Simulated assay, not measured.
Amino acid sequence: MTQALVDLIPDLPKVLLHDHLDGGLRPQTVLELADEVGHTLPALDADSLGTWFVESADSGSLVRYLETFDHTIAVMQTPEALARVAREAVLDLAADGVVYAEQRWAPEQHLAKGLSLEATVEAVQAGIDEGIREAAAAGRIIRVGQLVTAMRHTDRWQEVAQLAVAYRDRGVVGFDIAGPEDGFPPSRHAEIWRFLAEHDFPVTIHAGEAAGVDSISQAVHLGQADRLGHGVRIMEDITLGSGEEPGNGERRAELGRLAHWVRDHQIALEVCPVSNLQTSAAHGATGIADHPITVLKELDFAVTLNTDNRLMSRTSMSHEMTRLVSEAGWTIDDLADVTMTAAWSTFMHHDERRSLVDDVILPGYQKIEGALR
């Protein structure tokens, strides 16, 4: 049954909430764009370059992981490059069975050639729109929104938040902060969260990856985050017992107050297993089998499955699902659970979420379940 499920994973409908635009370029695209702008790369062919990105990211250090973005961002400084990268991202995701995705990226990192913040958002949206049209022509229906991100350490949070709100009806679906988590908490610019709340604007915050429970606490209480980017270090507020609760087969666990808050409010965790292992964010896990995503799902946290950076992790949604099935014993019910949770956690309106679930996710899973019988 396991191999049969693995074989069918590419056909499952997938919902992706945490995927960085500048972390998902095709290696060949990086080469071609670098040649156009005269940027020097650490490798001269697509295979070698792809391997370099993975090996550099696979260091166990978030700081080293983030350094790989120097090369992708360097080649994404023109409208044409931004549109190309966005278009290809949509096509690659659609080919992997993704039916809804939110692409996060930081416009402030793409101004080196004189673009305005507004021009970067419009270029990315043009690429997304083109990718959606091409995917539809090939029989793949996908919906994609932009998550506009402010970099924690550059202090342009207000400016970027205003940009996100200004483009809310033109492709932007939410706001995020990213970059160095430790030392740059949401309280650094506390006023921004009131601004976003007053504009009824969705928020996800990178938290619980490079920093621990204090970062998560600020994200959910001060930042009023609807979702947590990664969030796996919520495990630091959970004490696991041995065995199962007698009579009901549930895992023994004692939750701290913050863990209870996150679970009680079903604040979605945007978990990225392969990336978490690369950056040592996964609570001491040595592999997918002991990654906390399984425990968190068993404990009824609102767990979603994500890729983070497909280039640096050489991953896809199908790859993440395959490893969970093969190494952590996940079943089709587990995959359906995280997919449904992601669908209900998208930054769409409720009726749109309902349509995604009823018209796309459920029929897609029913078809695969029928094939497994």
Rank of each mutant, 00 (worst) to 15 (best):
Q3W: 00
A4P: 04
V6Q: 09
D19N: 07
L21N: 02
D22S: 11
G23I: 07
G24W: 02
L25R: 08
A34P: 06
D35G: 14
E36A: 15
H39V: 13
T40Q: 14
A43M: 01
D45T: 13
A46P: 06
L49A: 08
S61H: 12
S61E: 14
S61A: 09
V63C: 02
R64P: 03
L66P: 03
I73Y: 03
V75W: 10
L91E: 13
D96C: 01
V98M: 04
A106T: 15
P107G: 10
Q109A: 14
H110S: 06
L111P: 12
L115V: 07
S116Y: 10
V121S: 13
Q125R: 15
Q125G: 02
G131Q: 08
G131N: 08
I132D: 00
A138W: 04
R140C: 07
I141K: 13
Q146D: 07
L147C: 13
T154H: 09
D155F: 12
R156W: 10
Q158E: 13
Q162N: 11
V165W: 12
D169F: 11
G171M: 08
V172I: 08
V173N: 02
G174K: 11
D176W: 10
G179T: 04
P180S: 01
E181Y: 00
E181A: 00
P186D: 11
S187E: 13
H189C: 10
F201C: 13
P202T: 09
T204K: 04
G208F: 05
G208L: 05
G212T: 03
D214R: 12
Q218H: 06
A219Q: 04
H221G: 04
R227T: 01
G229F: 01
R233D: 03
D237L: 01
T239A: 12
S242F: 14
G243K: 12
E244C: 09
N248T: 15
N248V: 14
R251S: 11
L258N: 11
E270G: 01
V274D: 08
Q278D: 04
A281N: 10
H283S: 13
H283R: 05
G287W: 05
G287Q: 09
I288E: 05
I293P: 11
L296R: 07
K297E: 12
R314C: 01
R314F: 00
R314E: 02
H319Q: 08
H319E: 14
L324V: 03
A328I: 06
A328W: 00
D333F: 07
D334E: 06
L335K: 02
T341E: 06
A343M: 09
M348N: 07
R354M: 13
D359V: 02
P363G: 06
Q366C: 04
K367I: 04
I368G: 00
E369T: 10
